[in-house]
């Protein structure tokens, strides 16, 4: 492995971090340490990359991640009522994880579903044209 190499080297860092994120719902310190060693990078360098991207998390997260879009096209279509409904449904605030580890709740920037506003992502599924009434049913599918 070399530091600047294209294959298997540094160029794979983001891919490897993404893989770790999807496998264990976060990037642990052990993972960062291992990646730093195998790619011959400093821990800080790997941590710096992991902390840059908003879909990567260095803190443990729930089994399912809810991301409600808070950008203007969704806000115009009452995204706030969706945020409130999710909050009531799962009993936590944005930035938190339910005690049973089922959901993490986040607000996110434009997800490119403005034609179906208000919209949210649960894991990588996009749910659009939401109404407060639909929330419970949508979330039911995620255990």
């Amino acid at each position: 492995m070399n530091k600047t190499g294209r294959n298997g080297g540094r160029g794979e860092l983001l891919v490897l971090l993404e893989a770790a994120q999807s496998k264990s719902a976060h990037i642990s310190r052990d993972t960062i340490t291992e990646l730093a060693e195998s790619l011959d990078l400093s821990i800080g360098e790997v941590y710096g990359v992991a902390s840059f991207y908003s879909f990567l998390s260095t803190k443990p997260q729930g089994r399912n991640i809810i991301r409600i879009c808070k950008s203007l096209p969704c806000l115009l279509k009452h995204a706030q009522t969706i945020i409130d409904s999710v909050r009531q449904e799962i009993g936590i605030l944005p930035g938190e994880t339910t005690p049973d580890g089922r959901f993490s709740f986040e607000l996110t920037n434009c997800i490119g579903a403005c034609d179906k506003a208000p919209a949210m992502m649960v894991n990588s599924d996009v749910h659009g044209d939401l109404t407060p009434k639909k929330i419970a049913k949508v979330l039911q599918a995620y255990k």
Partner: peptide, 11 residues
């Protein structure tokens, strides 16, 4: 990486 707010044409 279509990220501009309100853009979804590439999608």
């Amino acid at each position: 990486d279509e990220g501009e707010v309100g853009t979804f044409k590439d999608r």
